[in-house]
Simulated assay, not measured.
Amino acid sequence: MENPITDAGGWSDRYASQVLSLLRIVTALLFLEHGTSKMFAFPLSAASDPPIWSLFWVAGAMELVGGLLLLVGLFSRPVALLLSGEMAIGYWLIHAAKGPFPILNGGESAVLFCFVFLYIAFEGPGEWSVDCAMGRRRDLSGPNGYYESGHVRAD
């Protein structure tokens, strides 16, 4: 029996790029909140209003600018790679010092952001992005395929 969701040419193939875009957009919105909290004290948190040029201030600037760029999908791959590194450094400097387990040291979101950004850096921003609209990527596999250069479906 054929599965319309997971079989080749099914929904998972047809909508992969749109779902990737949704992952990027939702992740960017959540990440942007960390930047606005640090830089504008909105929403107010323990990390709000760090001293200028401190490690938390630089992280907040990266979260704000990087979150906005990822939200619209502009320069997505290099931005996602930088933010993945920021989250890895943040985890090891801030969270890992409190213990080895992310659930106990408060580092679950840092780990998750790190790997989602790493995935976006390798996979690209998805179809709904400025990068795609500007023609930075070429569709090699037809109107229902992946738009990313280098992705060739085996149909």
Results as ranks from 00 to 15, higher is better:
Met1Leu: 13
Pro4Leu: 15
Asp7Gly: 03
Gly9Lys: 08
Gly9Gln: 04
Gln18Ala: 10
Leu23Tyr: 03
Arg24Glu: 03
Ile25Glu: 05
Val26Trp: 05
Val26His: 07
Met39Glu: 08
Met39Leu: 15
Ser45Phe: 10
Ala46Met: 11
Trp53Ile: 07
Trp53Ser: 05
Trp53Lys: 01
Leu55Ser: 14
Leu55His: 10
Phe56Asn: 10
Trp57Ala: 06
Trp57Gly: 05
Ala59Val: 11
Leu64Glu: 03
Leu64Pro: 01
Val65Ser: 03
Gly66Ser: 09
Gly67Arg: 09
Gly67Thr: 08
Leu68Cys: 13
Leu69Lys: 06
Val72Gln: 01
Gly73Met: 11
Phe75Arg: 02
Ala80Phe: 01
Leu81Pro: 02
Ser84Arg: 03
Gly85Gln: 00
Gly90Asn: 02
Tyr91Glu: 01
Ile94Trp: 00
Ile94Ala: 13
Ala96Thr: 03
Ala97Thr: 14
Pro102Arg: 05
Glu108Gly: 05
Ser109Thr: 13
Val111Asn: 04
Leu112Ser: 12
Phe115Tyr: 15
Phe117Gln: 03
Leu118Ser: 03
Tyr119Cys: 02
Ile120Asn: 00
Phe122Val: 13
Glu123Val: 08
Gly126Val: 09
Gly126Tyr: 10
Glu127Tyr: 07
Trp128Cys: 02
Asp139Gly: 12
Leu140His: 14
Gly142Trp: 14
Gly145Gln: 06
Tyr147Pro: 00
Tyr147Glu: 10
Glu148Ile: 11
Arg153Pro: 07
Asp155Tyr: 14
Asp155Gln: 08
